[in-house]
């Protein structure tokens, strides 16, 4: 079954990418916003490049670190997890419900320079941080000029 969920964030990202490509004539970016039908919500992310590593920060409020899964396969990093309800019963008294529960799913294709073996992740205050070191031979090296 080919069901597509409506993802406002990915639409806005797409817009952002299109605008950027239009204005700057840039190619496609690192992120792969192909979210599958299996996700109920999409976390907002930041991806930053430093000389020796890539850093991903994802907003995952209300998700316990135990419920987050990170996979690396064939140069594609997959984040998935689930936001579970805090109380299972007592559903009656809700006067306002904006929070979305259920699973999230996001994939990113990493550049060849990423070192898949040494990826680490931790979660604090609802922000997931993934550190992806670059392979040592790919790191910029300063070449001394001899006189």
């Amino acid at each position: 079954m080919n069901m597509r969920r409506y993802e406002p964030w990915s639409l806005l990202n797409q817009l952002n990418n299109e605008m950027n490509a239009l204005m700057e004539g840039r190619g496609p970016s690192l992120g792969d916003s192909s979210t599958l039908a299996t996700s109920d919500w999409v976390p907002a992310v930041d991806i930053r490049e430093e000389p020796d590593r890539y850093l991903i920060h994802a907003d995952v409020p209300g998700v316990s670190p135990d419920d987050i899964e990170i996979h690396m396969e064939g140069g594609v990093l997959t984040l998935k997890g689930e936001r579970k309800r805090e109380d299972t019963e007592e559903r009656e008294g809700y006067k306002r419900v904006e929070r979305v529960y259920g699973s999230f799913y996001r994939r990113f294709s990493l550049p060849d320079t990423a070192d898949a073996e040494r990826i680490t992740a931790n979660s604090r205050n609802g922000v997931l941080e993934i550190v992806i070191p670059k392979q040592e031979k790919m790191q910029p090296r300063r070449i001394e000029v001899q006189s």
Binding site: L30, R48, Y54
Partner: peptide, 9 residues
């Protein structure tokens, strides 16, 4: 530090 490739937060 560094440069941002994606910033949604």
């Amino acid at each position: 530090r560094g440069s941002y490739l994606i910033s949604e937060r």
